[in-house]
Simulated scan of single mutants.
Amino acid sequence: MKRSSGAVGRRGLRAGLIVFVLAGSGIGVTSVEASAATACPQGSVCFYKDANFQGGISIQQRLVESPYQIANFVNSHFQDGTTLENQVSSVINNSDRTLCLWSNRNFQGQYNWGVTSHFYAAQIPNDVMTSARTVPAGQSC
Rank of each mutant, 00 (worst) to 15 (best):
M1W: 09
M1P: 07
S5I: 14
A7N: 15
V8Q: 11
V8P: 03
R10F: 07
R11A: 11
G12V: 00
R14P: 01
R14W: 08
I18A: 06
V19S: 10
A23Q: 05
S25Y: 01
S25P: 00
G26D: 13
G26R: 13
T30L: 12
S31C: 06
V32F: 02
V32P: 03
E33V: 08
A34D: 11
S35Q: 07
T38H: 01
C40Y: 02
G43E: 04
S44N: 12
V45Q: 04
C46K: 00
C46N: 06
F47V: 02
N52K: 10
N52L: 06
Q54K: 12
Q54V: 12
G56A: 15
I59S: 03
Q60D: 11
E65G: 05
P67N: 08
Q69W: 08
F73P: 00
V74K: 15
N75Q: 10
S76T: 03
S76E: 15
H77F: 09
H77N: 05
F78K: 09
F78W: 11
G81M: 08
T82D: 12
T83L: 09
T83S: 15
T83I: 08
E85A: 10
Q87C: 01
V88G: 02
S89R: 07
V91T: 12
I92Y: 02
N93P: 13
N93Y: 00
N94M: 01
D96A: 08
D96C: 03
R97N: 12
R97I: 13
T98C: 07
L101R: 00
N104L: 14
W113P: 00
G114Y: 07
S117E: 13
F119N: 04
Y120F: 10
A122P: 00
A122G: 04
T130H: 09
A132C: 06
A132S: 11
R133Q: 09
